[in-house]
Amino acid sequence: MWPSRTRTETVTCLACGIECPRDEAREYDKHGDRWDRADKTFEHLCKSCHRELCHHPRAELEDLLVELEAGERDRDAFLASYLSAVEERYGTLEEES
């Protein structure tokens, strides 16, 4: 038998921790590919936290974080290596006038 359409699934926002109805949340895929749904489970963000996200493409970000041992190194050492790697690969980060 099919589940009731009126049943509301509750999810927890991964950013702020509040619980909200699934239909009031946004799916989050840490790999940046929420359209490829095969064999995936998604985390969720409440609408407020989703609005605050940067929605620019994240190509190569996960690989770079793994390569630089994010979460396994001292914060200051990680940030220094991250900034160095980004500038080496993509140039300096300067605002356009």
Rank of each mutant, 00 (worst) to 15 (best):
W2R: 11
P3H: 08
P3E: 07
S4C: 03
R5N: 11
R5H: 14
R5V: 14
T6F: 06
T6M: 06
T6W: 01
R7H: 12
R7A: 10
R7K: 14
T8A: 08
E9Q: 12
V11H: 08
V11N: 02
T12V: 14
T12L: 04
T12Q: 07
C13W: 02
A15N: 13
A15I: 12
A15H: 10
C16L: 05
C16W: 02
G17Y: 10
G17P: 13
E19T: 05
C20E: 02
C20H: 02
C20M: 04
C20W: 00
P21F: 11
P21N: 05
P21S: 03
R22K: 13
D23G: 01
E24F: 01
R26W: 00
R26V: 10
R26F: 01
E27C: 08
E27M: 12
E27K: 10
Y28R: 05
K30T: 10
H31D: 08
H31V: 00
G32T: 10
G32P: 09
G32Y: 13
D33F: 03
D33I: 05
D33P: 01
D33T: 09
R34C: 12
W35A: 14
W35N: 14
R37P: 00
R37D: 03
A38K: 15
A38D: 04
A38W: 10
D39G: 08
K40I: 12
F42M: 05
E43S: 14
H44M: 03
H44R: 02
H44A: 09
H44K: 01
K47H: 06
C49M: 07
C49P: 06
H50Y: 11
H50L: 00
E52D: 09
L53Q: 15
L53R: 15
L53Y: 06
C54K: 08
C54M: 06
H55A: 00
H55N: 07
H56K: 15
H56Y: 15
P57R: 14
P57Y: 04
R58Q: 12
A59C: 03
A59G: 04
A59V: 10
L61E: 05
E62D: 11
D63K: 10
L64Q: 06
L64V: 13
L64G: 03
L64C: 04
L65K: 11
V66I: 14
V66P: 00
L68G: 07
L68W: 12
E69P: 01
E69I: 00
A70M: 06
A70C: 07
G71T: 06
G71D: 09
E72Y: 08
R73L: 15
D74S: 02
D74Y: 01
D74G: 00
D74C: 04
D74L: 01
R75D: 04
R75L: 05
D76W: 01
D76I: 02
A77I: 12
A77N: 04
F78C: 01
F78E: 01
L79C: 04
L79H: 12
A80F: 00
A80M: 02
S81Q: 07
Y82N: 00
L83H: 10
A85H: 07
V86C: 13
E88R: 15
E88G: 09
R89E: 06
R89A: 13
R89F: 02
R89W: 06
Y90M: 14
Y90E: 15
T92F: 10
T92E: 15
T92R: 14
T92A: 15
T92P: 12
E95W: 10
E96H: 07
E96P: 02
S97E: 13
